[in-house]
């Protein structure tokens, strides 16, 4: 479904992503794990068009994303929940969700999706009229995910959804990710919480200083000594 082939990303002279290739098949949860600054976020941004890779290609459902304007990528069915949630703080919860459906024209479909998001996240319904900036971190993360699924994406890119959340909320967020996957969404997950990420993933890639150093079945990686040592706390 998603194929990333040898991409390179630079920030000025810094070579942040070096020949990264990865693949996500339909229906999978694939996670991208690694330490701070390994290039996980940059990789996701290069996929969703927030960054333009200097070389290499990204293709989604057979189409070359380099040739697509970045604001059209969502229309093709790929939504991205960015790092740090980035909800529109000065807009209400409902307006944030409506922005998620910006590319959708059918009002009935939008209303259905809105209802579905409210059913999945009852907290958001309670706070429908509240400004997003006044929500707690966990609620903002739910809003960010809710906003992304308002467009009925086929694939969801999630960047550090557990960042800064309490263990209880982390658990909740991961079970939501699993549910979304079971309802048919393909998921590419970037996480520092490697243990949690691997526990719900089919496959995973390990990124170190801009390069993929390991890849494979999530269960196997959990047993891998190097991974255990570096990311799973022994």
């Amino acid at each position: 479904m998603l194929k990333v082939d040898n991409i390179n990303v630079f920030y000025g002279v810094i070579h942040a992503i070096k020949n990264v290739s990865l693949e996500v098949k339909e229906g999978e949860i694939v996670s991208l794990i690694g330490a701070n600054g390994a290039g996980k976020t940059s990789t996701l941004q290069a996929i969703s068009g927030m960054l333009k890779p200097k070389s290499g290609s990204v293709s989604f459902m057979g189409e070359d994303l380099n040739k697509v304007e970045s604001y059209d990528i969502l229309k093709m069915g790929m939504a991205h929940v960015p790092e740090g949630r980035r909800v529109f703080a000065g807009m209400s919860v409902k307006e944030n969700l409506e922005m998620g459906a910006y590319t959708r024209k059918d009002q009935n479909e939008i209303n259905d999706n809105l209802e579905r998001v409210f059913m999945r996240f009852p907290r958001l319904l309670e706070r429908k009229k509240q400004l997003a900036g006044t929500l707690s971190g966990g609620e903002q993360q739910m809003l960010a995910i809710g906003r992304a699924i308002m467009s009925n994406p086929k694939m969801l890119l999630l960047d550090e959804p557990s960042m800064g959340l309490s263990p209880l909320l982390v658990k909740e967020i991961f079970s939501i990710i699993k549910e979304l996957n079971e309802s048919g969404m393909t998921i590419l997950l970037v996480e520092q919480n490697a243990k949690k990420a691997l526990s719900i993933s089919n496959r995973a890639y390990v990124l170190e200083t801009g390069k993929i150093v390991l890849e494979g079945d999530a269960k196997e990686l959990m047993e891998n000594d190097a991974v255990k040592k570096a990311y799973l706390g022994g």
Partner: peptide, 13 residues
């Protein structure tokens, strides 16, 4: 509010 996030919503900046 946030033009990067707006772009992710499919808005033509």
């Amino acid at each position: 509010e946030d033009y990067g996030a707006a772009q992710l919503m499919g808005i033509n900046i």
